Simulated assay, not measured.
Amino acid sequence: MTNNPTNFRHLYYFWVVAKEGSITRAAERLGLAIQTVSTQLAQLEQSIGKALFTQQGRRLTLTEAGRLALSYADQIFLLGEQMQEALAEAGSGRTRLTVGISDSLPKLTAYRLLEIATQLPHPVRLVCYEGGFDELLADLALHRLDVVLTDRAVPSGTLLRVFSHQLADSEMIVAGVPQLAGAYRAGFPQSLDNAPFLLPTRNNALRGKIDEWFESHGVRPDVVGEFEDNALLNTFGRRGLGLFFAPSALAHDIEEQFGALLVGRVPQVREHFYAVSNERKIKHPAVEAILSAVHQGVLAGT
């Protein structure tokens, strides 16, 4: 293997071949002769000293080196496409806000927060990605995201240079469809003993607090479902499969969108919402606007 810098044109041809699965289809996509693509792919393999593909019948299959190279090429060229989009918008007066949304964050909360950005005097284009907490933090550290919205702070001692900014916190409520709400409202919270519940999985920051609250009141719920994704939990709740916890700040939205009514308030259990950024001080104007609006009480009930 030589120490020559990577030829990114050759790497781009490799990326397209890997995505298309054959040199013929890649050449059609690139508008080049098959021989041109084949030659430049061979030059890339020669420069790195490793085979990137192996032939299996009529189809090319990535080698171990090829899979590793593809993982880096994905990052390089997907970021390149994002850069072109961002530069195209730079002269339009529109601000781009790329947001990572933790899959454990209630979607209504994410909407209420991002709605603030859409109401700014200057137009904002939202690009939203959903994923796991650690995955989103890694993307933030690599500057693929401007901010991450989540329900937990970044753990102390992390090697990533990212910083948590608390947006708000809200006491929780127990809610359910009218039939369930009517059956379990009287005598709350002792009435919840053996009640059907939909709960977040145990890797969710909120689950431990919920379990402690049940224990402190001597309540043993009938856990009929556990969900990592909050939106899926709410969908099952809307169908009446069980009671569920929700931020009190969203009580009106939950009733309006899910038809779920208040069973009882749980002030001892509070959910926290954070914006995580690469800077100790938020610099993106849209995120600054969200922070300012939240601190002025835009999220009712927080």
Results as ranks from 00 to 15, higher is better:
residue 145 L to H: 03
residue 145 L to E: 05
residue 145 L to N: 04
residue 146 D to C: 07
residue 146 D to Q: 08
residue 147 V to S: 03
residue 148 V to S: 03
residue 149 L to K: 00
residue 149 L to M: 03
residue 152 R to F: 02
residue 152 R to D: 00
residue 154 V to R: 03
residue 155 P to L: 06
residue 158 T to G: 10
residue 158 T to C: 08
residue 159 L to K: 10
residue 160 L to G: 05
residue 161 R to F: 07
residue 162 V to E: 04
residue 166 Q to P: 09
residue 166 Q to T: 09
residue 166 Q to H: 05
residue 166 Q to V: 09
residue 167 L to A: 08
residue 168 A to T: 12
residue 169 D to N: 11
residue 170 S to A: 14
residue 170 S to P: 01
residue 171 E to H: 13
residue 172 M to C: 13
residue 172 M to D: 03
residue 172 M to E: 08
residue 173 I to V: 15
residue 173 I to M: 14
residue 174 V to P: 01
residue 175 A to Y: 01
residue 175 A to I: 13
residue 176 G to K: 01
residue 176 G to E: 01
residue 177 V to K: 08
residue 177 V to S: 09
residue 178 P to A: 07
residue 178 P to G: 06
residue 179 Q to W: 05
residue 179 Q to G: 05
residue 179 Q to V: 13
residue 179 Q to L: 11
residue 180 L to R: 01
residue 180 L to M: 07
residue 181 A to P: 01
residue 184 Y to F: 14
residue 185 R to G: 02
residue 188 F to W: 09
residue 189 P to K: 07
residue 191 S to R: 07
residue 191 S to T: 09
residue 193 D to C: 12
residue 193 D to G: 10
residue 193 D to L: 08
residue 194 N to K: 15
residue 194 N to S: 15
residue 195 A to I: 09
residue 195 A to N: 06
residue 196 P to Y: 06
residue 196 P to A: 09
residue 196 P to F: 07
residue 197 F to Q: 05
residue 197 F to L: 14
residue 198 L to A: 05
residue 198 L to I: 11
residue 199 L to K: 10
residue 202 R to V: 14
residue 204 N to E: 11
residue 204 N to R: 11
residue 209 K to D: 13
residue 209 K to E: 13
residue 210 I to V: 15
residue 210 I to W: 02
residue 211 D to P: 02
residue 212 E to T: 11
residue 212 E to M: 12
residue 212 E to L: 15
residue 213 W to A: 05
residue 215 E to W: 12
residue 215 E to P: 00
residue 216 S to R: 12
residue 216 S to T: 11
residue 217 H to P: 02
residue 217 H to G: 03
residue 218 G to V: 02
residue 218 G to D: 09
residue 218 G to N: 04
residue 219 V to Y: 03
residue 219 V to I: 15
residue 219 V to C: 04
residue 219 V to S: 05
residue 219 V to R: 05
residue 223 V to I: 15
residue 223 V to T: 14
residue 225 G to K: 08
residue 228 E to R: 13
residue 229 D to V: 14
residue 231 A to C: 06
residue 232 L to V: 14
residue 233 L to G: 01
residue 236 F to P: 00
residue 237 G to Q: 01
residue 240 G to H: 02
residue 241 L to E: 09
residue 241 L to V: 06
residue 243 L to A: 08
residue 243 L to F: 06
residue 244 F to T: 04
residue 244 F to H: 11
residue 246 A to C: 11
residue 247 P to C: 10
residue 247 P to K: 04
residue 248 S to P: 01
residue 248 S to F: 13
residue 248 S to Q: 14
residue 248 S to N: 12
residue 248 S to W: 10
residue 248 S to E: 13
